[in-house]
Simulated assay, not measured.
Amino acid sequence: MNIKAQIPNLFTMLNLFCGCAALVMVADYKFDFAFYFVCLGIFFDFFDGFFARKFNVAGPLGVQLDSLADMVTSGVVPGYVMFKMMSDSNCFGIQSYFPYLGFVITLGACYRLAKFNIDERQSVSFIGLPTPANALLITSLPLVADYFHSEVAMDFSYIKWFLIALTLLSAYIMNAEIPLFSLKFKNFSFTKYKLQILFLLVAVFMLFTLRILAVPLLIIIYVLLSIVNNIVNKKASI
């Protein structure tokens, strides 16, 4: 057995384990630990691709394992978090089935992951919001709400329509035909990756100053920066 070939798969399995642990945390209303496990899973997800390229052992098995692990960590977990936010707040009534709309996020993530595997355009950049970024956005919401409403934690009754709109927007933007810049560096050229470096510097500053509040803001900034970058590049090519 080629040990090097199994190292990326090991990291993929660690990603999957973190996704499973995050689901348990959500079920126990430990949204902070769920968020941390999702972050750890995304960390492992980054390094499985890194080692696959470094050891030149990328293959179809690794691609499939990566998507299946991401489906749990970045697909099922955020959908379950949204379901919990909708159902446990009683904003739709006890007998309402509306909270199940939260799993539209899971369906959108599943479709995106399947499309990503066969879309050759996404080898350098992304088309639509990557599922890990979307997972960070959704799983950070309970923590942001708790930050602002610590004395009435998880009271989402006044923003039920916001949650529905965000669920639908989340599923849409993961599959939208919007080019988004990748944060994967093939070398350390500042000229080539100045946008990515600028974003990472802003991200570090915001995370240190705003902490959990920075997470949803950074996802929004990431999308807006990509759109502006697309417009600038389009004008430059004319």
Rank of each mutant, 00 (worst) to 15 (best):
residue 188 F to Y: 14
residue 189 S to W: 13
residue 135 A to W: 01
residue 155 D to Q: 07
residue 168 L to G: 09
residue 146 D to V: 01
residue 196 Q to I: 03
residue 151 E to R: 07
residue 211 R to Y: 06
residue 207 L to E: 02
residue 125 S to W: 09
residue 183 L to H: 10
residue 167 T to P: 03
residue 171 A to S: 15
residue 169 L to P: 01
residue 137 L to M: 13
residue 161 W to E: 14
residue 117 N to D: 11
residue 162 F to E: 08
residue 201 L to H: 02
residue 159 I to H: 02
residue 112 R to W: 01
residue 117 N to G: 11
residue 128 G to Q: 00
residue 147 Y to C: 07
residue 197 I to Q: 02
residue 152 V to S: 15
residue 157 S to A: 15
residue 148 F to D: 00
residue 148 F to Y: 11
residue 118 I to L: 14
residue 145 A to P: 05
residue 174 M to H: 04
residue 190 F to T: 12
residue 125 S to I: 02
residue 154 M to Q: 14
residue 155 D to S: 09
residue 150 S to V: 11
residue 158 Y to S: 14
residue 181 F to E: 04
residue 140 S to V: 12
residue 200 L to R: 06
residue 116 F to H: 09
residue 204 V to A: 14
residue 143 L to I: 08
residue 141 L to K: 05
residue 142 P to K: 07
residue 169 L to Y: 11
residue 164 I to Q: 11
residue 198 L to H: 06
residue 150 S to L: 06
residue 152 V to M: 15
residue 128 G to T: 00
residue 137 L to D: 05
residue 179 P to V: 14
residue 152 V to C: 14
residue 116 F to L: 05
residue 164 I to K: 09
residue 167 T to M: 06
residue 173 I to E: 00
residue 164 I to C: 13
residue 122 Q to H: 04
residue 155 D to P: 10
residue 176 A to D: 04
residue 122 Q to M: 10
residue 161 W to Y: 15
residue 114 A to N: 02
residue 199 F to V: 00
residue 182 S to G: 07
residue 122 Q to T: 04
residue 175 N to Y: 05
residue 209 T to Y: 07
residue 151 E to N: 14
residue 199 F to E: 06
residue 213 L to R: 01
residue 124 V to D: 13
residue 159 I to W: 03
residue 195 L to A: 03
residue 159 I to T: 10
residue 127 I to A: 00
residue 186 K to Y: 12
residue 185 F to H: 03
residue 179 P to I: 11
residue 141 L to M: 14
residue 166 L to V: 15
residue 116 F to R: 02
residue 198 L to F: 13
residue 154 M to D: 08
